[in-house]
Design a protein around this nucleic acid. Structure first.
Lengths: 228, 228
DNA sequence: TACATACTTTCACTATAATCGAAATATGGA
DNA sequence: TCCATATTTCGATTATAGTGAAAGTATGTA
């Protein structure tokens, strides 16, 4: 009937609470098994399997088979970015329990957005790098200043290697919880990896939240002037 | 249940073919009455009214009452941008009739994307302005060169007035039909308005396609070196 | 006042889709 | 070969949501 792309088809994949939860869980950028995702969405494995098949068929999710496990992941970075954009225009989560509200707080404090940092920490970090003169904010992206080049190299990030990657280098990603931009792209990914390597941050199990270690607390304070 | 924003709620608004058609129809950025939208989505007025009420309640659409008419419009520019992004990751429309395929062609040739030009014409125009040295493409946006400043002013566009508007000035919008970027933001809107003022383009009734007039054909050729 | 138009609300019908139990399949290890 | 684990397929149940007829409301016109 319509002369426009079949938006409804994709939307119907996202319109179901269980599937939306599965997708949100996959937004940490990692692989998850069907059983894991079933647990996170609080549904039986066979139901999750049913939903995952739909998501794979709709090209939102891809699957890799390894033995009797099947590992699911978001199909590509674009899907992750699209979902993050979707979260920003969606109404905030309803709080129904204490556990839930503390989990929401963890997510809002610091989380991964596919392959880079988001939440309060992600935004603060980005703004700190801007005010320190390492990054310059353009309309929808960040550019590295000469000072920044020195800084990132000294911090242990191989900028030339990142530039070689066939993807956006340093675009601005709108944070759904903070409603402000944070750094994404290859540079954002490089920083996240470095923070893990330095053991400044660790993952919180089952949700895509991030916890700052004591070492990280000191590091973020000293180098980025952020109180975590 | 979920600790993420209620994405499913918004998605369910888009997941229904009639509503998706209504939203796509509203993407021309203009106001439409309930009856018009009912006709475009090929449903009865009472059904359209039912859907429109949902869209308004979900903050995707706003309504203005004037006498016995109720005029509907997308709630804001962000929604329009979000929908355009949604179209790019959605599967292409299925062709079922000759009329439909010619309408699709019209849309792909030239259309409005809320308040700026999109489709082949939009992309060609943008790329022409880049190769002429009026615009410079950054990662996710365009910047005006000094030559460009002269050009736009001479073409009858008040750049200072546009900059004063509280919105993105010249970001890149991904074209769903061309899969390439075109110019959006206040500058994109300024250009569209100017083209209408110059009578280079007119609207095609009932779909958000754009037709280039004979005068426009000459203008686009002379000033932008595009064969339409 | 009477009537037409624009639109919404109510209601009943129908179709679709999510869910889960049960059984089937596939893989790895003992 | 047998069993445990991971996942899918099938089938039945249930809930939900789109649809349009009919009636209702509001606004403008004769």
């Amino acid at each position: 009937m319509s002369i426009n792309p079949n938006m409804a088809e994709v939307a119907s994949l996202l319109s179901e609470a269980s599937r939306a939860t599965i997708l949100a869980s996959l937004m940490d950028g990692r692989f998850h098994t069907a059983s894991e995702l079933a647990f996170m969405a609080a549904i039986k494995p066979q139901t999750a399997s049913f939903h995952l098949a739909k998501l794979v068929e709709g090209n939102l999710v891809k699957v890799e088979k390894q033995g009797r496990h099947r590992y699911f992941q978001l199909a590509n970075v674009e899907i992750a970015q699209f979902l993050e954009a979707f979260l920003t225009i969606s109404p905030p989560p309803e709080v129904r329990s204490l556990k839930q509200s503390s989990q929401i707080k963890l997510l809002q404090d610091a989380r991964t957005c596919y392959d880079h940092l988001a939440g309060k920490l992600g935004v603060q970090l980005t703004e700190s790098m801007v005010s320190s003169g390492y990054l310059k904010k353009e309309e929808q992206q960040y550019t590295i200043t000469p000072t920044g080049q020195l800084f990132f190299t000294e911090f242990g990030i191989d900028l030339t290697a990142l530039t070689r990657k066939r993807r956006s280098f340093s675009h601005a990603c709108l944070d759904w919880s903070e409603r402000r931009h944070h750094l994404a792209g290859a540079l954002g990914q490089g920083l996240l990896t470095r923070f893990f390597d330095l053991a400044w941050i660790t993952r919180v199990p089952s949700i895509r939240a991030i916890k700052v270690t004591e070492k990280g607390r000191q590091g973020f304070k000293q180098i980025f002037h952020i109180d975590v």
